[in-house]
Design a protein around this nucleic acid. Structure first.
Lengths: 116, 116
DNA sequence: TTCACATATCGCCATATGCCGATATGATAA
DNA sequence: TTATCATATCGGCATATGGCGATATGTGAA
């Protein structure tokens, strides 16, 4: 029950849902999400923590950046069903649509790749 | 988005999840749910309103009782998927298991059927 | 080491949520 | 009609949540 509630609570906020849906399109670092969402960095970080603790996201470091992605592990089939269902459920949210449009133009400059 | 958030919020409370799962076994009136959940009547009523407004439940009158049931309408395929997923997801919650065991022994006396 | 950037955490505030008791509404029985 | 039962709504209280700015931590560049 606890796990289920954590997942539902995690998905109970529009900005968190938008984060998940953006990550379903492309893995992103915190600062990219911050720019897309237009929220304070601390707020984005807190949202990511909530999603992470619900088992919805995974993350990895790339230099100074932390790259977040939708979890791909097969250990929670239920979560995968929910994420799959989400794809077609909330595609018409205007705020999300606008973010999606801006997505290609938001990119970090990778320090580790910009030495040359 | 709004509808999705409403559904997620509705499913973000353990007692509401238990209500849905009990109703998946058998349609019930408010007083039966009240006894099973061990909550105040006003609290149960409020929970039912939240679930109802999320499109998860339907209700009908039977005399003085209001009988609640899980919605069966096909108009929201997403909700049906979620409800179906819920069946196998939260079956091990001890509180729910105890309620399930008590379910056969909790019943209203239907006024309209107890005249003879 | 020292600086700058990316991220995480902390403290605070406004609002939302879950609970209850009290009360209003709806329906049946007397 | 009046009394009673079932349900819904209201008001209040304690806690949870989402937002921000300030600050701490982690990483790479100089």
């Amino acid at each position: 029950m606890k796990e289920f509630i954590r997942v539902m609570k995690a998905m109970s906020d529009p900005n968190r849902v938008r984060i998940v849906k953006l990550l379903q399109l492309k893995e992103l670092c915190v600062c990219e999400l911050q720019e897309l969402l237009g929220l304070a960095q601390s707020t984005v970080s807190k949202h990511l923590k909530v999603l992470d603790e619900a088992g919805l996201l995974s993350n990895s470091r790339d230099g100074a950046w932390v790259i977040y992605a939708v979890t791909k592990s097969e250990d929670s089939a239920h979560i995968n069903v929910l994420l799959q269902e989400l794809r077609g459920w909330v595609d018409d949210d205007p705020v999300y649509v606008a973010m999606k449009r801006r997505l290609p133009f938001v990119d970090r400059v990778r320090i580790s790749a910009s030495c040359g």
